[in-house]
Structures are given as C-alpha cells and as structure tokens.
Nucleic acid binder design. Structure first.
Length: 796
DNA sequence: GCTACTACTTAGCACCGCCGTT
DNA sequence: AACGGCGGTGCTAAGTAGTAGC
C-alpha cells in the first residue's frame, strides 16, 4: 500500500497529533518536559492548528489523532449525523421466551438439550462431553456422524434480545431484580501446596524451609528473571511478608538479609519442570488436560432461572505475590490463600448448597436477587472484594453490554445540547461550574476517563478530574500538552489545540492551585456525574468514551470502505478504523522486539512473490509477445533491481541443491530401513545436474532480459490466470505488512471488546459481504451474539 | 457532605496451544 | 519432528460509579 493519499488540505486535518511515538512503561517517571514559559518547540510544532469550522465540529473527538496518518483522522464534518436514526426509546422488558438454536460450536462439547438444574445434573451429563473430548480425531473421521449428533445436541440458547415485552410475567418485577432462581456448584479452590524440597541458599549454604516458607520463596523464585524480581518495592514487600512466614516455624533458619538469599536453585527446578512438561507425549498431555476438565466440569455452568449459563472465573485465585502495575506501593506483597471460610456464595433459597471442601464451611450463603455474582471473597493485599461472575457470553453480560451501547447511542441525541451548555459554562463566574465545564470538554473531546481520586497505597495514576498541575503544560496561544500516567500506569501523551476559553481556564486553574495540586480542585467525579445525569438520564463520564469510540469507528469505517475493494482492502479499512479508536482511547502496547525482523521477512516474501510474477510475465511474453506492451504486464517491479534478482536466484539455487541432497538422503534412509539397497551416488548427481541446468537457464535469462524458455504446458490462458493469482497474493501480503506496521504500538483488542458497538461491525459485514469470522474471533462472536442479526443499514 | 463499601466494566500481561516453517 | 511466532485465552489488576453508612 503506497501511502500517497496525502491529499487532504491541512485545514481539514485533525487538529492535533500525537507527539511521541515511543510507548511508555509502567513506573517510568513522567518527565516534566518543559516549564510553562518555555515551551519545548520540538513538542509543539507537531501540531498544526488552523482555526476553521472544524473546530466547532460537533462530532469528531479532538483526540482523533494518529501518529503516522493524521490524514486519516481528518474528518469532514456533518451536522447531518444529528438527524439520523430515530432512537427507539422502548427498552424491551426481558422475558423468558426461549428459542431453539443450533449450536455453532464445533468442538463437540455441545451438551444434552435438556436444560436441567445442576442439582439433578452431574455425572451422567457431565461425563459425556468429557469422553468426547479425547477423541477429536476420531470425530473428524466420522464427520457425518458427528453432524447428526450435533443436531441431536441442539441446544437452547436464550435469545433474550428477541424476547418480546409481553412475555412471561416472571421477570416483570423491578429492574433491580436480576434473577428468580440461581443455582451453581460454587467455586473451585486451588490444590494444596506440595513441597518440592529443593533447597535454596542463604549466605551460600543450602537451607531447609517449612512447606509454607518454601511456597512463598518459590513464588519469588518463579519470577526471578522477570522485572518484578528486580523491582525494589517488590523485593521489599515480598521479603517482609516472607520473613513473617518464616517466623511461624521455629525450625526455619534465621533470615535477615535479602541480599544473601539465592533463589536460583528453585528457579532452576522450575525451568527443568517446564522442560519436562514440554517433553511430555501427546497422550500424557491429553490425560492431564482431561483430568483438569473433569475437575472443572461441575463449575463450568450455572443455572439462571433454569437457563444454563457459562460461569466466568469459578476458580478461587491462588496465593502468590501481588503483581501491582506501575509504581504500586504494595507490589510484591503476599497474597494469601483463600479459605472457604472467607467465601460467600449467592444462590436461590431453595437451591442445593454446594459442599465446601472437607472440614470447611462457607463464610455465608446469601440469596441476593439484586446481584449477579455467584461467589465473593475479600482479598488481603488491598482489601478489595473479588467476585465470581458469569462469562462474557452470558445473558447478563450481553444485556448490560447492549444497554451500555444503547445509552452511548442515546447520547448522540443529547450531545449537541450538552456541548452547547458546557461551552457556555466555560465562562461561568462560578469557578466550580467553570471547572466542571472544562472537565466535560476534555472528557468529551479527548475521551479521558473520569479520574476518581486514589489513595496513597495505590499507584499514582490520574484521569480527568484528578489531573494535577504538572500533567498539563500550556503553550500559547492555545495548545495543551498532556503527559500523565492513566489507568494501568499507561502514559498518556497528547498535544491538543483547544478552545481559547478552555486554554484560559486551565491556565487560571493551574495558577490558583499551584504545583502538585489537582487542577480541578472544586470538582469530584461524583459531582460531575451528578450533573451529567441531569443532562441525560443515566449519563456518566464513561459514556462519552463509549460514544466517542463507537461514533469514530462508524465514521471512519464508512469513510474508508468502498464497495469494490478486495477483501484484504476491506479488512485493512476495518482495522484502520479500529486503530483510530484504539489511538483515541490510548490503548497502547509496546512494539514487540521482533517487529523489525518480522517486517523484513514479510518484505522478503513479497519480493519473492514478485519475482515469481516477473517470471510468469516473461513466460507470457514468450507465448504472446503482444502482452509486452500491455499494462500492467509491462510494468517494472519497483523494489526489485538486478542485484536483488541475482542474489535471490543464487539463494534459490542454493536451496534447490540443499533440497535435492535432503531428498536423496531421505530416500536412502527409507530404503535402508526397508532393508533395500541405497540409491547410488549418481542419482544425487543427476538431481544436482538438473539444478545446475536451472541455474544456467536463470543466468541466461538474466542476461537476455525478459527472454525466457517456455516450459512444459504453459498456455497463455494458464499463465494469465497464474499471474492474476499472484497479483492477489502480492496485494494481500502488502496489505498485511501495512496493517502490521501501523499496528505495532497499538492494541486493538480492548476497543473492539469494550468500546465499539458490535452492531456497527456486523452491519458492515453484511453491507460489504465480509464473513463475520474475519472481524470477530469465536469468543467475541459469542459475546456479541445479541448484535449479530442487525440490518445492514444499521448505524450507530 | 463525606468516606467506605460494593458491584460491575475495562485493561494489560503472561502463558498456551496451534499452525506454518525449517 | 522440532521450532518459533502469534492469536487466543485466562487471569486478575485497576478502573468507574452508585449506594450505604456516618
């Protein structure tokens, strides 16, 4: 893909551009790039600001930036976006209507069509899929049979999105009731610790540890080669907690110095274990997997109002060292083993209560019909509450997902007025309102997170409301430079041209609070959300992010896709639109170490294909000279010079010789094993001679450019056909390369999963005849089942 | 009003298994 | 058959936001 569509007038470009390409890592200090009075020009000049109507563009988030392709971010404004889609207000009441659906699942895991309660279920039903699992190959062989079976296994999928409002009365109660009956088998605890007995060293000498101390030491040893083990905070917290554990058993040695600890022996043991695991035979691996599935089986599903649903995380989190991200003060702290006595279950009054592990009991068993969690416990490191929920594919998750996107879509209708209002309030004499308006501007235009306040015992990260003095630098006349650590300590760096009044406000607020303090000192997320709620029912700060993401995606997709594009081109457009959203939401990833290498290899492969195409063309000319003058056959390959061709051909020949030799050896080995006489050396010579001939031919062809011997049964038609196929392969590979390059520092997954209304994608697939599997993997298809049947005309 | 608690969504990391390559 | 790279998935941390309790 030559990127030559540099054709947009500057004035239409997105008003700002991401300034720094390098991704930033957790915990890296945020440098204060410049003082307010001496803006760093190298940072500033990257932004182009031209005051146009685009600035009043109601639709395009300012943050529609892109490091390498600002042109794509430019948007032509359309007030027309406003009028479309009469939003149906009717929120369908959910009912219990069931629809029979064939399961798409190919895995042979489909279960009996009887939808039974777990109390009556168990072994018989649960064992069935298990026994099948080990015989995947067999199943493939007997595909026909399995097809029949699949139909037998037709399963009821609750299509809640199709359920009519006048349905059952069962779910008519208030919206806070989430279920009438809830049954499940509780949670799965990690196995008890089994000591390995490997002695680590202290002060150079092997030491014997109590099992408990050994376990904790092993947690650390496992991370020895990771960044965590080198993090002083991590070391400190681990060592403190480990010493406590050591003290519990008087037989443990006295350990006082972290520096004298040598965890390497344990680390090496784990490495060996990994190696062993790799060496296991297929059968062994399969057996282990089967055992695992068997243990999991009872916990995989829950029953909500009689309907079978997948459970998400039924496993109780195992003990370990807390791996806080960024500069978390508690990182490395020992996360203790959770006992059943700490776990509360939530299920129906009349449901069978799952048995706690032997000798234990549950903390509590409740029947909270307003909650969707199945189990909960409190974790010791931060005192946060953990939950077991249903899986992403469940009705509960699907419903709230749909509601989320519908709400974001609702915002479309309100956004114009909201913008008008806050723009006015930017001038309000009441500072609290002015701050609120300014914050709303940032949340709306940059898709920032709300920014709740955080404690001292957490990593220092911020969002909009918690931005501090040093997080925004001003550059006259109205550029704001953002640089702060956001969620997960991901750095947000962005330079934005803003409304003059926003600039003035930030300047004023900063002056009022001074360094180290929060810029919006009169604003809290609660206050902001209260106000947002009064603007539109149910509105909160995060809705803007969803709205902006989905809206951007819809726009970019419409703009980039063309009816006649090839499938790879369409996919590139899709991914580009996706990418724009990821950039907007600052979903970064660090470029993999092998990225450059990967790109090189791709390029080499592309060239190899081009070379083949060239040869085909020459053949064509030999067959039908008139093509010599016809486009595109007469075009030269831009990135393939004589030198490259010579090198490539030499490589090809080398490979051919190698192949011939290997083939010869293989044949002989085979003959030997069959007790027959090996082929004579002359056989190999024969093959090599053919290669020599090929080499000579290539050299000759190279000299007499484009003149080629016609081989075998080449006909004009066939060659033309082959050339076309080659064209397609080359185009596809080039597109793939472009895609990969543009993706190297951006993670698409998060926006796809959480921010982009899947109905946009499904409608697009329909409209442009793209298989849905191209845009969603199996998991996402399941998660977004509710969106799948939208009309091709549907828009966000 | 404030803080603490609760419930749920959003997020990146690490590992695993598959698939194409050698 | 081994290898290695990559996408998918599991895991759980880290957010948002509403509510409960003072």
């Amino acid at each position: 893909m030559s990127d030559s569509e540099d054709d947009l007038p500057l004035a239409q470009r997105a008003v700002q551009i991401k300034t720094t390409a390098s991704p930033v890592h957790r915990g890296s200090p945020v440098p204060l790039r410049m003082s307010e009075d001496t803006p760093d020009p190298s940072q500033a000049h990257t932004s182009v600001y031209i005051k146009t109507e685009e600035d009043s563009d109601d639709d395009m988030p300012l943050a529609m930036r892109s490091n390498n392709n600002a042109k794509r971010s430019a948007t032509i404004k359309s007030e027309s976006d406003e009028e479309d889609i009469p939003l149906s207000k009717k929120r369908k009441k959910l009912s219990l209507k069931k629809t029979k659906v064939k399961r798409e699942d190919e895995s042979g895991l489909a279960t009996s069509k009887r939808s039974r309660a777990p109390s009556s279920s168990s072994d018989e039903e649960d064992a069935k899929p298990l026994s099948k699992r080990g015989k995947i190959k067999k199943e493939e062989k007997t595909k026909k049979t399995s097809k029949v079976k699949k139909e037998e296994n037709e399963e009821e999928i609750y299509k809640w999105w199709e359920a009519s409002s006048s349905g059952d009365k069962q779910q008519e109660q208030d919206e806070t009731t989430k279920w009438m009956t809830l049954q499940h088998n509780g949670v799965l605890f990690p196995p008890d610790y089994e000591p390995h007995g490997v002695k680590m060293k202290y002060d150079g000498k092997p030491i014997t540890l109590s099992p408990e101390a050994e376990e904790v030491a092993s947690f650390f040893a496992a991370l020895l080669e990771s960044d965590h083990a080198k993090n002083p905070t991590f070391q400190k917290n681990f060592f403190r907690d480990w010493k406590d554990v050591l003290k519990k058993d008087p037989r443990n040695p006295k350990i006082t110095s972290f520096e004298k600890c040598d965890f390497r022996p344990i680390w090496e043991k784990f490495e060996k274990d990994k190696e062993k695991k790799k060496q296991m035979t297929k059968e062994e691996k399969l057996r282990i997997k089967e055992e695992r599935t068997k243990i999991e089986e009872p916990f995989i599903h829950a029953y909500v109002d009689g309907r079978k649903e997948k459970v998400g995380n039924f496993r109780i989190e195992p003990p370990g060292l807390f791996r806080g991200r960024g500069d978390h003060p508690k990182t490395g702290t020992l996360k203790q083993r959770v006992a059943p006595e700490q776990v509360t279950l939530n299920l129906s009054k009349d449901a069978k209560i799952p048995k706690p592990p032997k000798g234990h009991k549950w903390a509590d068993v409740v029947n909270d019909q307003t909650a969707t969690w199945l189990a909960t416990w409190k974790e010791n490191v931060n005192g946060t509450i953990k939950y077991v929920f249903l899986a992403q594919s469940s009705a509960w998750k699907g419903q709230s997902d749909m509601q989320k996107f519908d709400k974001a879509r609702d915002l479309k209708k309100y956004v114009k007025q909201i913008r008008k209002d806050y723009t006015k309030e930017l001038y309000d004499k009441e500072m609290a309102k002015r701050q609120r308006a300014t914050a709303m501007y940032l949340i709306d235009r940059l898709a920032l997170r709300a920014g709740n306040e955080k404690g001292d015992d957490e990593a220092d990260t911020v969002g909009c409301c918690s931005l501090r003095y040093e997080h925004i630098q001003l550059e006259p006349p109205h550029t704001l430079h953002f640089d702060f650590l956001g969620k997960d300590s991901i750095r947000y760096q962005n330079s934005v041209q803003v409304e003059t009044q926003v600039y003035k406000n930030i300047k004023l607020f900063k002056k009022q609070v001074g360094p180290g303090s929060m810029i919006f000192d009169r604003l809290t997320t609660t206050g902001l959300n209260k106000h947002l709620n009064s603007c539109m029912p149910g509105l909160s700060a995060k809705v803007f992010r969803t709205y902006n993401a989905s809206h951007t995606f819809q726009q970019q997709l419409d703009k980039l896709t063309h009816k006649d594009d090839s499938l790879p081109d369409k996919m590139l457009s899709f991914n580009r639109a996706n990418r724009d959203v990821a950039v907007l939401c600052n979903h970064q990833r660090s470029a993999s170490k092998s990225h450059g290498q990967m790109m090189e290899r791709l390029q080499d492969r592309t060239r190899a294909l081009k070379y083949q195409r060239m040869k085909l063309r020459h053949t064509l000319f030999a067959l039908e000279p008139s093509y010599k003058k016809k486009s595109p056959y007469n075009e030269l390959e831009s990135d393939m010079d004589d030198e490259w061709i010579a090198n490539h051909e030499t490589e090809l020949i080398v490979k051919e010789r190698e192949k011939a030799r290997i083939k010869f050896e293989k044949q002989n080995e085979k003959l030997k094993s069959e007790g027959e006489r090996p082929l004579p050396e002359s056989h190999l010579k024969e093959s090599l001679k053919l290669v020599d001939e090929m080499e000579a031919r290539l050299i000759k062809e190279r000299k007499k450019k484009g003149v080629i011997e016609i081989k075998g049964k080449a006909t004009t038609e066939r060659v033309l056909n082959n050339i076309e196929k080659m064209d397609q392969r080359i185009a596809a590979m080039k597109i793939q390369a472009t895609d990969k390059e543009e993706n190297k520092e951006i993670a698409l997954g998060t926006s796809k999963m959480n921010y982009i209304d899947p109905r946009i994608s499904f409608a697009w697939c329909q409209k442009y005849d793209v298989p849905v599997q191209k845009v969603f993997n199996k998991t996402l298809l399941e998660k977004f089942r509710w969106a799948q049947e939208v009309n091709a005309k549907w828009t966000f």
